[in-house]
Design a protein around this nucleic acid. Structure first.
Lengths: 123, 123
DNA sequence: TCCTCCGGTATCCGATCGGATACCGCAAAG
DNA sequence: CTTTGCGGTATCCGATCGGATACCGGAGGA
């Protein structure tokens, strides 16, 4: 049997860029956790640090700056003494939640099949 | 004005593991492209390589093995001469498409705000 | 006989990522 | 005056990731 040549066309190119924009955001370590905890209302740096004990301040700071630059969260300095800083999901940020939920849904099926070497508490 | 102490509780911990399972899959370089092109039907290694010119065989091979191990695609060796290899989305793999679409939707809004430094064709 | 195609693998390499640790200035509290 | 908490930053480090390049055996075709 000879190797027949394929003539069928592939679908149009995927909209790769928006996907990259989103995955590079929520793909960073702890980013989904940060978003998740902010979904409960405004939260301060130290509070987030306490919410997610294993995260280092360096990484938390980096994540927050990334998310802020993407317009997903707001950083507000409050006129307290000493000044405190609130982080809060923007309207755009709240739109991320359904997407995250969709990912979680599939992720659940992925792990349910036992096909992936998950269950390790790494990361 | 003093720095008031927060007493409100944070929401329950996020289901981090399924999310990690999914993002570690679709977060890899070119992974969404591979899935996208496979959504058009079975495809061979060289065809995928041609579909996504910038991908190197090394990375394509790695992605395909990852996706196969996760149960997202099937690898089938056909009894042609020479033997050819078909990759195909499984039912589980097709369930990824809505999630990817959800990500693309948010990603579009992210880029639309102009907040992110996208538009660079990197990756 | 030599060439090409298929489906990859082997090696090297630089960039980035995230963890660990230490440290900072400021202000209030004790 | 010393300590504590806040909101980070600085430095170092190992691991991983992905790109570049080269190469492979087997089968058909010219």
């Amino acid at each position: 049997m000879a190797l027949r040549r394929r003539r069928n066309r592939s679908p149009a190119p995927p909209p790769s860029c928006p996907l990259l924009a989103c995955t590079s955001l929520i793909g960073g370590a702890w980013a989904p956790n940060v978003i998740w905890y902010l979904s409960g209302g405004p939260r301060r740096f130290t509070e987030l640090k306490a919410d997610i004990p294993p995260i280092t301040p360096r990484v938390l700071s980096k994540r927050l700056r990334e998310l802020e630059k993407a317009g997903v969260i707001d950083r507000r300095v409050l006129p307290t003494s000493p000044p405190s800083v609130d982080y809060e999901l923007t309207a755009l940020g709240r739109e991320l939640l359904p997407a995250i939920q969709a990912i979680v849904d599939v992720g659940t099926r992925l792990t349910a099949t036992g096909a992936s070497p998950m269950a390790s508490q790494k990361r």
